[in-house]
Design a protein around this nucleic acid. Sequence first.
DNA 1: CTCCTCCTCAACCTTTCGATGGACCTTGGT
DNA 2: ACCAAGGTCCATCGAAAGGTTGAGGAGGAG
Lengths: 208, 208
Amino acid sequence: MADPIRIMIVEDHNIVRQGLVALLQTVSDFVVVAEAADGRRAVELFREHQPDVTLMDLRLQKMNGVEAIGRIRSDFPLARIIVLTTFDGDEDIYRALQAGARGYLLKGMEGDELMDAIRAVHAGKSRIPSAVAERLAGRMSGPVLTDRETDVLRLIVKGNSNKEIASKLTITEATVKTHVNNLLSKLGVSDRTQAATTALQRGIVHLD
Amino acid sequence: MADPIRIMIVEDHNIVRQGLVALLQTVSDFVVVAEAADGRRAVELFREHQPDVTLMDLRLQKMNGVEAIGRIRSDFPLARIIVLTTFDGDEDIYRALQAGARGYLLKGMEGDELMDAIRAVHAGKSRIPSAVAERLAGRMSGPVLTDRETDVLRLIVKGNSNKEIASKLTITEATVKTHVNNLLSKLGVSDRTQAATTALQRGIVHLD
DNA sequence: CTCCTCCTCAACCTTTCGATGGACCTTGGT
DNA sequence: ACCAAGGTCCATCGAAAGGTTGAGGAGGAG
């Protein structure tokens, strides 16, 4: 038999992570060599163990999954990382793949698919389920928010008025209104409350 | 050795559920007798297997966890159910305990605590971590939204204007404004967008 | 019965939003 | 060098939202 696949698991919910470990240990050619509960620790442990495949959730303490992927890949460009998350919205999928993830799995999938994906990614392939790929395509076709618009959107979600946004970005309220207008049309909604909820739904911003 | 504790797991994410099963199987006096991926199935399987302890997530397809708990407890008042979730906000904790849950655990806790909780609840005790209990106390002290206010809040989160809300509830816009005003002061916010985001954060309503 | 809460509605006023049109500037392609 | 495009910026105006006060009816608790 070939060498086992050495796996690192990055997941902030202890019970879930321990469950994943137990699940993967039931497969003879998998061995979990490291576990991390947050992004910073993930980067450290990757350096130390250099696992064959890394399973990474995106919502993490201290450093989010996307940033952790980026840092790991900048040190180890061949790192094979699979995102394993509970669908955080189109935007997160896109950013994770941009950062260098080779696979993107949803926790709702079957354990078998997880095993397959680990083997596939370990063999140098990538693994994007069609359901995820479709969302990605949708994101591509849709309009992309500019940096400034994203700034404004983030402040809207936090409950700021246009005046407050203007103050925080040191621009006039009129300018904020322009950005808000562009946001609304790009997001396909008609007011800021809808903008906030769809931004959360699509994962463009998060509540912390 | 005593009889093993017969456990049912209700969790919509397959991978997480299978991980939990694998984790619990590592303990000799636990045996997982049923698994459900949604609330309806949970009620069916409880009838069929009548497990000693049920681990239940709250965010489920077809029937949410709170409703499933209520139905199970109406048929089996002695059912011992532990909520195992990723903190959905104060409101869900309250509703789950109201519905008859004996324990409320967060997925971020250690596996040991899960095992302890299962044994404690099986022995007829209850298990509410202090972190959860504090939030519960906070909820108690805070003002409680009326039914109508909750209706309005739900429609606000969906992005409806006051006029649209009035139409959908078949009341006048003036009345809607009254409810909105009461909502804002009860939630301690100053506009509807903040109301929407804090409602999501506190788990009073959910995005689907 | 009476008190209290909730739901309902109205009038009035102030502030905020959203829509529109146009300015300047940088960037990349011709 | 040019100009086309997109991003950021700003002003004005009508519409919507929020604040305030007041008030009537229905239903439950004491």
